[in-house]
């Protein structure tokens, strides 16, 4: 199975109070549990089921995710910040693993 790898696009700078767009992607097959293998057996479900973005520790945006979200889940949202800091992104897999990424953003 190919590696599960998060990628995020966050502007380096933002104006206080201005909405900035955040784009996130994680390479993940999002096995829905609907597919069958060559022997006709159901391939078990294994997906990213939750995504959370926190800024300086405060939750800004989150998503609960079901198998109907496409493979390599792409999630785009926006934040409006009053100060500089770090955005942390966490993706949770059905198997309990958590994949994370962090980006600093300078707000003036």
């Amino acid at each position: 199975m190919s590696k599960i790898k998060p990628r995020v696009k966050v502007p380096k700078k933002a104006k206080a109070g201005e909405a900035v767009t955040i784009k996130t992607l994680i390479s993940h097959p999002m096995e829905s549990g609907q597919r069958k293998d060559k022997q006709g057996k159901i391939i078990p479900r294994k997906i990213i089921n939750k995504f959370v973005a926190t800024f300086n520790g405060e939750e800004a945006f989150s998503a609960t995710i079901e198998p109907a979200v496409a493979a390599n889940p792409y999630i785009e949202f926006s934040v409006k910040l009053a100060e500089s800091g770090t955005i942390q992104f966490d993706w949770t897999d059905d198997d309990g693993s958590v994949y994370s990424a962090k980006k600093k953003i300078a707000v003036s």
């Binding site: 405060e58 800004a60 945006f61 926006s78 934040v79 910040l81």
Partner: peptide, 8 residues
């Protein structure tokens, strides 16, 4: 999707 206070 859940939007917190910091969501733009």
């Amino acid at each position: 999707f859940n939007f917190g206070k910091l969501a733009g």
